[in-house]
Simulated assay, not measured.
Amino acid sequence: MSYYFSTKVVGAFDDVIDRIREALKTQGFGIISEIDMQAALREKIGVDFRRYTILGACNPALAYEALQIEDKVGTMLPCNVVVQERGDGIEVAAIDPVASMQAIENHELNAKAAVVANKLKAAIETLRMAAEAVD
């Protein structure tokens, strides 16, 4: 089982970030954190790295439900979405919460993870479909 969903798109990096933000928003997610790994790695250890941004996506209603089921699930929140430069375009990848929740033996939580996974897949699919429409 893979631990993420992904697609590759053509476009400007910042535009792709805007597009995935909007796609996530339509699925009920907000971005509660953003990490520019290129800048962080340059600042902290002095290395050059490709453009790589981690967006911490949270669907508040589903996060609340998950926390009601399992109070330590917060160690696995928010759902991370990565936007990174690749040689053949921009890749957008999101964690598969079903895969990550396998570490917790709670069937009710696994069912909620599947709902979140479907919403993340739909957001990623929006970008893939838009990329195909351009081709």
Rank of each mutant, 00 (worst) to 15 (best):
A61M: 12
V47K: 06
E91G: 11
N118W: 00
G11Y: 04
G28W: 07
A130K: 14
D88G: 12
R128F: 14
K44N: 04
F5Q: 08
T7A: 00
L127S: 10
E91L: 13
V92G: 10
D96R: 03
R42N: 01
E91C: 14
R42D: 14
E85N: 15
A93C: 10
R19Q: 13
T53S: 04
R50P: 10
A12W: 12
F29M: 00
D36S: 02
N80I: 02
E125R: 13
M37H: 14
A40F: 09
A66M: 15
D18K: 06
L120V: 12
A94R: 05
F29I: 05
S100T: 11
G28L: 14
E125H: 11
L109E: 09
R51Q: 08
Y52E: 03
A103F: 01
A94I: 09
Q27H: 06
V116M: 15
H107Y: 10
L109P: 06
L55W: 05
D14M: 12
P60A: 13
G74S: 08
A122C: 04
A130H: 12
Y4Q: 15
E91V: 12
Y3L: 02
A39M: 02
L67H: 13
A123L: 10
V73E: 14
E85P: 15
L127Y: 13
A63Q: 12
L62Y: 11
V16W: 04
E70A: 09
A123Y: 00
T75D: 13
G74D: 09
I35E: 04
K119A: 11
I35G: 03
E43D: 09
A123N: 08
A131W: 03
I69H: 09
D96P: 00
S2P: 00
I35K: 03
E34C: 00
R86A: 14
G11R: 02
E108Y: 13
R51F: 04
S6L: 03
E108N: 13
P97H: 06
S6A: 07
A23I: 01
P97M: 13
P78A: 02
V10D: 13
A57D: 06
D48Y: 01
S6H: 03
N59I: 11
I17R: 11
A39W: 01
E22F: 03
N80H: 10
E65I: 12
A40P: 02
E91H: 11
D48S: 09
R86C: 13
Y64K: 15
N118G: 15
L67F: 09
K119L: 12
G30S: 05
E105A: 04
A111Y: 13
K8L: 06
S6D: 02
H107N: 06
Y3K: 01
M76S: 01
R19T: 08
D135M: 13
F29H: 05
I20E: 09
R128Y: 13
H107M: 12
V81H: 09
R21F: 00
G28M: 01
G30L: 05
V81S: 07
V81Q: 06
R50K: 15
